[in-house]
Design a protein around this nucleic acid. Structure first.
Lengths: 227, 227
DNA sequence: TTATTGTTAACTGTTGACAGTTAACTCTCC
DNA sequence: GGAGAGTTAACTGTCAACAGTTAACAATAA
């Protein structure tokens, strides 16, 4: 029997489209978002856009100020705060994954690492970024904790956004990243929760340091988007 | 000059009202939520209710199934998952608070504990519950990590909901709770991050155990709302 | 020129209407 | 009596319109 394609509701489509556009920097941090314009651009009604905007506001990707909505514009402290939270959640994720991960998921991780090494040799920054995300997603999924996965959705939207729009990821940082991943993978393979947790925490701590130096480099450049 | 009272937007008011009603069990877990009815009850238009529903869905207090929305109905695993996340976030909260808490906030905590002891003597369960929440909120605020506070908003809505609607808090559990709080308070007063973190983790672990036994007691009662 | 006051134009908040879909409830006809 | 078609009623998805607010800009007076 042929699958019937029920079209996804418009408001949901608008949500995903606008979210992606924010992530890609198509809408700039701090930029004002206007219902009317988005509605016109996408060819839908204002009410539909409104629903999407409410959801994006809950994601913290839009923020209300006075009566208008603006694209999220994190300051330096926000970024530190986000990484601090991430450290805690990713450690938990690794710990739980060490208990619950399947052999198949371990294989997936191994493959991701292998591909990462190849991408590192090129080097292919775009691919490294996406593989990095995939690595963490796989572990989160392997934790089998739905609530944790939901919390990641909130925090990861911001992390990705920061990476894309605020920091310009420098390729030299990826080498450390991949070797960290390898250590985490080994801990998971040994199914050692404490070790996985510890390695993950160190890993996030290291990425924070990378972000931090990138951040302070940007502080020097006066035309930077970060004030 | 006289303050001008700008009325809060309707959709926001509806959000808070419906959220509260869900928390209080005025809408039952698993119950279907109908835009039309809520709109009529509150005397606002459907579009307004829609916006509130979108926000509640993001909070996970409503869940979409097919084309309809239902009140969140966590299963036993969800509850364990939530407490696992909470353990991680609350520990972080305590650790950061130990670094950043002000003397005034320490006084607040001390007062909360004193009131808790009084309420424990009565015993006044309602008050104990609200003081418990206040204790944790104060620490979260003292952490000065805005992202963490936002994550708590997501998770706490569920925790409160579970406490109110799923578990019936038994008063005997509160004694342990208050003495735990006292230990955490002392660690914060000494401004010892590691100790605060450790005490908090143990505390949440203990509340999980309380929840767990309450849960299994309920499993025996066949007319329970938990399947 | 600088303030102050109109005057639009641009938006947001809210609503009521309409189309399409699903669910429930008949009413047949076997 | 029961399977299947027909008929409503109940909802959701989407939109267009209107009122109220704010912001920008022009016009006028000091």
């Amino acid at each position: 029997m042929r699958e019937i394609k029920k079209t996804e509701p418009l408001h949901s489509q608008v949500y995903h489209i606008v979210k992606e556009m924010i992530m890609e920097g198509k809408y700039q941090p701090g930029e004002r978002m206007v219902e009317t314009k988005v509605a016109e651009n996408l060819g839908v009604s204002r009410g539909t856009v409104r629903e999407a905007f409410r959801m994006l506001t809950k994601d913290d990707l839009l923020a209300q100020k006075e009566n208008s909505l603006f694209v999220y514009h994190p300051d330096a402290q926000d970024i530190l705060d986000i990484y601090e939270c991430r450290k805690s959640l990713e450690s938990l994720s690794a710990k739980l994954a060490a208990r619950n991960i399947t052999d198949q998921q371990l294989e997936q991780l191994e493959q991701i690492i292998n591909e990462s090494k190849k991408a590192l040799a090129m080097p292919d920054t775009q691919k490294l970024t996406s593989l990095n995300q995939k690595f963490h997603d796989t572990i989160a999924f392997a934790s089998r904790n739905k609530q944790l996965i939901q919390l990641f959705e909130v925090i990861n939207a911001k992390v990705l956004y920061i990476r894309n729009c605020i920091l310009k990821e420098r390729s030299e940082s990826f080498a450390v990243l991949v070797s960290d991943h390898e250590e985490i993978f080994l801990a998971l393979k040994e199914r050692d929760p404490a070790k996985a947790e510890e390695k993950m925490e160190a890993h996030i701590q290291r990425s924070l340091k990378v972000a931090n130096t990138a951040l302070s480099k940007q502080m020097d450049e006066p035309e930077s988007s970060l004030g």
